[in-house]
Design a protein around this nucleic acid. Sequence first.
DNA 1: CCAAAGATTGGACTTTGTCTAATTCCGGAA
DNA 2: TTCCGGAATTAGACAAAGTCCAATCTTTGG
Lengths: 138, 138
Amino acid sequence: MKATSYSRPELIALLRRHGVAPTHQRLEIAHVLFGRCEHLAADQILTLVNERHAETSKATVYNTLNLFRDRGLIREVIVDPKRVFYDPNTQPHHHLYNIDTGEITDIGAEVLAVSGLPELPPGMVTEGVDIIVRIRAL
Amino acid sequence: MKATSYSRPELIALLRRHGVAPTHQRLEIAHVLFGRCEHLAADQILTLVNERHAETSKATVYNTLNLFRDRGLIREVIVDPKRVFYDPNTQPHHHLYNIDTGEITDIGAEVLAVSGLPELPPGMVTEGVDIIVRIRAL
DNA sequence: CCAAAGATTGGACTTTGTCTAATTCCGGAA
DNA sequence: TTCCGGAATTAGACAAAGTCCAATCTTTGG
């Protein structure tokens, strides 16, 4: 969870490196995602991006998040049936989910280890292993 | 994953044991959930329950699933952002999720071990640890 | 600088799930 | 058995997240 905020040219390079054309709206969204290091939902991103001047539509936010996800720039975090969160950290890691507040925190994959993963049927591959530790106030 | 189909009196006893009044509709829903051993979504349950005669409303299906979940009769499985699945198996276990087909399979908790769970902030307790192994055809 | 390819847009639409007020059901007491 | 009050069910309106579409606007390679 680095606090580094990318500069505009860095963001452009980042998108290009993933084969994404750096349009104005995409840069705004990337800025929001990579600027802070939180787990944000689409509606939060829509709000943040349009804080100063309304300049990005709902459709574009959804299009862009799906594009970023497909191109491996961000990861989806599915812990809340109500909305998907997006995680700018694409390193292997897991999540701590506070079911009272909705807060999501990363747990590095180095810390958490799983053993005993079953063998897969032939022709099947593991796409990823997600561990969600659900916690709450006592 | 036992194939045992509960008899009607057994279902009634099961509900009563969990403090749930055994109404006609609740028994129908319990029958669908515990009869087959699949992971079903609310809309599938609604369809199955009304296959012969329409007799249970959408509202009741949702009410009942939430009630069963709160009373510990079933568990929610959150793997697909589009819909929640309900799992009649309340033993500790994890899931294999086929992202192509949407198929969900259980993995016994005995098989899978996690090490390195972080210490929680004081006053926090772990509600549960969910592991989802996402797989797909090569 | 121009045209084609690609991106963005508002708004309608879909889907999952919740809410509400009115009705119906159920179980216990007499 | 009948009656009563609380609990359960219901239709349908509603809400929120996300998708789709056809029209418009940008971007970019040549």
